[in-house]
Design a protein around this nucleic acid. Structure first.
Lengths: 329, 329
DNA sequence: TATTTTGTGTTAACCGGTTGACATTTAATT
DNA sequence: AATTAAATGTCAACCGGTTAACACAAAATA
């Protein structure tokens, strides 16, 4: 019933009949070691079920092999896939993940940043949506941003949002839509996703159509969002095309449009954005712009790891997107 | 250009004109302290942008305020929501999350368990699907399982899978389905989800119908799964009801059934399982059994935190489910 | 005035590994 | 036989906080 004390390096040394230093040498593969000694030590470690206390090592080595991920929430197909892929890749490179879901709350994000730094993470990958957190500036820590502009020191990985916005808009126009509405996140968040808005507006004007953009808050309840989206139809009953800036919203729009009697795609054509795996399985009919989520994740991890090991800055990366031809256009 | 050294407790002490001990006392609110001293110390901390090195504290205190979450993957609406909710709750209780996506690979799960223990996590919440990892036994660590039977020492939080299975099956039967097929995960994984299969088979027999259960591997590609699911229709072209053990698979089945010419729900009625938020937004028409994911997450966290602070064992918890009346039945 | 409470300092041990310096023995090479 | 390389040990400092023990002064209370 008594607490089983975890074995320490001294216990291993004693059982193996060697010194603490030798055990450490075996673990870290340093200096001269005979096969015999290595075996003795490993046997002792097995027998004691020894796990070195990583915390002690972290303190001395001044590195934790931890990476913090700060994202709005993994409860979203896009971020879920992004985080899952990064986690997998980081694990294969020997890093563990400290997860921080900021829920788009700037205070929480700031707190996370501080606390993850206090936990001595070796690096950070950030994809939260908030702006103007000055702590990132003096964070003196390798950071990579995904789909988010932070400051000049921090490399950004994103997909080609302008191209994506253009493709979506042209798809609608070429299929005969005339009254095309676009939804996007708050303009104040100067994320690369805002380029979709720019592309939409440019393309509309280029084709002699009038751009109509609505700003949707990311962080509202399902019901509030439904109310907001319904109002779009009230304002523009003649709408025949919509470019919605993320697939989850697009799904909600399809649902609302159906309730209001629109036939998709006959009366109304809809294009979403993101194209996460799960979305494509759950809603294969949704025409959308696919971001290369896995590639973005891999590149962000590679850049971060490079930044951690050497000091090599790394450039911003913009990846191509493609169209998923569903049945909503 | 020179490396800015992070401030340490000694630097704060020097700047505030107090001793290291006093700074520590301020941080930990121990012993007698005057307002004046507290202010001096805080000012110094602010000026130096001081963040205590959590690793040093962890080593001494023998607690890390870290909790490990081992789940198949956050890239799935059910686990994504579960992890997001737990993370939020844990954060509010002062814990950070170390994320481990095991991808249903027993080796990876074992590795994670070992490494998270080496990282000195204060506790673990496990919802991976693999069985027979003996390391959990001698893990001498507070652990809570979600929807997964591990061993008698480890409390399990789950929803009422038997009730859910019964509700789903009866829903199909009462709406006139006769040839009802059920899919479930491998029988060898002795998870509580297996009770859905039991409930399905019991209910079918009770109504004088023949149960037909297919075992679907969780961990195969989209294409492999499609092939497998198509074969079900080949084996039973007269199928008019399906109880699919998770919503993502159900979505795929709907898609395939549509391609094969079945009209849902007229020719074929389908009930899914899980009812995660995202699924319900993306696919509101899917009739499904809703697990109280957020409650499960909260209860698991509460139980874990209780286990960490005192030694209070905690009972298994089974939560009620409910039906989401979509349009696929 | 005597006593207790409050506020702060100094010192050193401790958490559990890692590492450099140096010594010693054994094995391999010249 | 002499020299060099390989294998291991001992010792102590170090990472950056936390804390117990003890000392002492100032403020509050009896």
């Amino acid at each position: 019933m008594g607490e089983i004390m975890k074995a320490k390096i001294d216990d291993v040394a004693k059982l193996a009949g060697v010194s603490k230093t030798t055990v450490s040498r075996v673990m870290n593969k340093r200096g001269y070691l005979s096969e015999k000694t290595i075996k003795k030590v490993h046997d002792a470690m097995d027998e004691l079920n020894y796990q070195p206390n990583v915390v002690a090592r972290q303190l001395f080595k001044q590195e934790t092999k931890l990476v913090g991920l700060i994202f709005p929430t993994v409860n979203n197909p896009f971020f879920g896939q992004l985080v899952a892929t990064m986690e997998k890749k980081l694990f294969s490179k020997g890093f563990k993940v400290l997860l921080g879901d900021s829920m788009n709350d700037p205070e929480k994000e700031k707190l996370y940043l501080r606390e993850l730094m206090a936990h001595q993470v070796d690096g950070l990958i950030v994809g939260a949506h908030n702006q103007g957190i000055k702590e990132y500036q003096n964070a003196n820590l390798p950071i990579i941003a995904i789909d988010r502009i932070m400051n000049n020191d921090i490399p950004v990985v994103s997909s080609d949002n302008y191209q994506g916005g253009k493709m979506a808009t042209e798809l609608l126009i070429k299929n005969g839509a005339k009254v095309i509405i676009h939804t996007n996140g708050p303009k104040t968040l100067q994320t690369p996703a805002q380029k979709r808005r720019q592309a939409y507006e440019d393309t509309m004007i280029q084709y002699g159509l009038k751009p109509i953009t609505y700003t949707v808050d990311f962080n509202v309840s399902y019901e509030q969002k439904a109310k907001f989206l319904k109002n779009i139809f009230k304002d523009h009953p003649d709408v025949d095309g919509m470019f919605i800036s993320n697939d989850v919203d697009a799904a909600q729009v399809i649902d609302i449009a159906g309730d209001l009697g629109y036939k998709v795609p006959d009366d109304l054509k809809i294009v979403g954005y993101d194209g996460a795996e799960t979305t494509r399985i759950l809603l294969p009919n949704l025409t959308t712009i696919i971001q290369p989520i896995d590639r973005m994740a891999e590149i962000a991890v590679n850049m971060l790891v490079a930044r951690i090991s050497n000091n090599d800055a790394g450039e911003n990366k913009v990846l191509p997107v493609k169209v998923w031809r569903g049945k909503t256009v």
